[in-house]
């Protein structure tokens, strides 16, 4: 079995700061990490490898520094890693990104057919959850999103049964390979890297593909040209026009404050008293 796991390198959002004057993201010094959601996809792929035997190839599109994300994946136990990197990809939206990744996966297939493609549920930066469905559509793979559990895999029949998180319940779906799975967070827990794999990751001869190596001929499908969406404006959230009315009484006793608050509130919002009455009943 051959599994491809798509991982994206993202800035650690907990440490992102916005420049107060220019409203741009200050990336300097912000560490880059593997998109946390992608680790659930990678772990699930590695579990399938443990159970059924598989070759796990990790694929990332990004700047040359994104190599670190791929080495991290090797240290967890992935077999191969490919970094698709080219200035021509700059400005890609999800349509262009899924085009580039699908082309790269087709190239990977030339070596060994791919049975399952894994992706994260979404990223923590672009946060669209659109790339997985995009790749599936372009490659005509059965799409399984928000997968909480792989219940069964029959490699002879080439069938897979999964639990998919739906609105208000769980769908149990059976489909045929090849498929694309986006893994739900919390569906597993990433293993620790072994010493041997960490050594392997450090020495691993990472493959770097430019657009030609990734099999992309039509440059109008990638980068800004291949991206229908255009960011027209970036701005800070408007502070609400009115600041809170601060309730202040001379005595500042909690009881007085509370009574004053309710009196003011129910005068200004007469319906609210009604609503609360209904709700409490």
């Amino acid at each position: 079995m051959h599994i491809v796991v798509c991982i994206k390198q993202v800035p650690d959002s907990a440490q992102i700061r916005v420049h107060p004057v220019t409203n741009t993201i200050m990336r300097q010094g912000v560490p880059a990490i593997v998109n946390p959601y992608d680790l659930f996809a990678l772990e699930e792929a590695l579990r399938l490898k443990d159970k059924y035997g598989a070759r796990v190839t990790v694929l990332c599109m990004g700047p040359p520094q994104a190599e670190a994300a791929l080495r991290k994946a090797i240290s967890f136990g992935a077999d191969d890693a490919i970094l698709v990197t080219d200035r021509a990809f700059a400005g890609s939206d999800t349509l262009a990104t899924s085009f580039a990744l699908a082309s790269a996966i087709r190239k990977i297939q030339e070596d060994m057919p791919v049975d399952i493609v894994f992706a994260g549920k979404q990223t923590i930066d672009g946060d669209t959850a659109q790339v997985g469905p995009g790749i599936a559509k372009r490659m005509d793979l059965q799409l399984l999103t928000y997968v909480a559990k792989i219940a069964d895999l029959d490699l002879n029949k080439r069938e897979i049964v999964i639990h998919r998180r739906a609105e208000g319940g769980v769908q149990v779906l059976k489909t045929k390979l090849p498929c694309l799975i986006t893994m739900l967070e919390g569906s597993n827990e990433m293993r620790f890297a072994t010493m041997a794999n960490m050594f392997r990751a450090a020495r691993y001869p990472l493959k770097q593909w430019d657009k030609d190596a990734a099999g992309i001929e039509d440059v109008t499908k990638i980068g800004l040209k291949g991206s229908p969406t255009i960011v027209s404006k970036v701005f800070a959230p408007q502070p609400k026009s009115q600041r809170a009315e601060i309730i202040d009484c001379e005595s500042r006793e909690p009881k007085d404050l509370s009574v004053t608050l309710l009196a003011k509130m129910f005068t200004r919002y007469p319906n609210l008293a009604e609503e609360i009455g209904k709700n409490a009943a």
């Binding site: 659109q130 790339v131 469905p133 928000y146 229908p228």
Partner: peptide
């Protein structure tokens, strides 16, 4: 979960922005 699954597939098929 339904809307995101469907929208991503439809936008890709139609080759439009989402």
């Amino acid at each position: 979960t339904l809307g995101r699954d469907l929208a991503g597939s439809v936008a890709t098929t139609l080759q439009t922005g989402l």
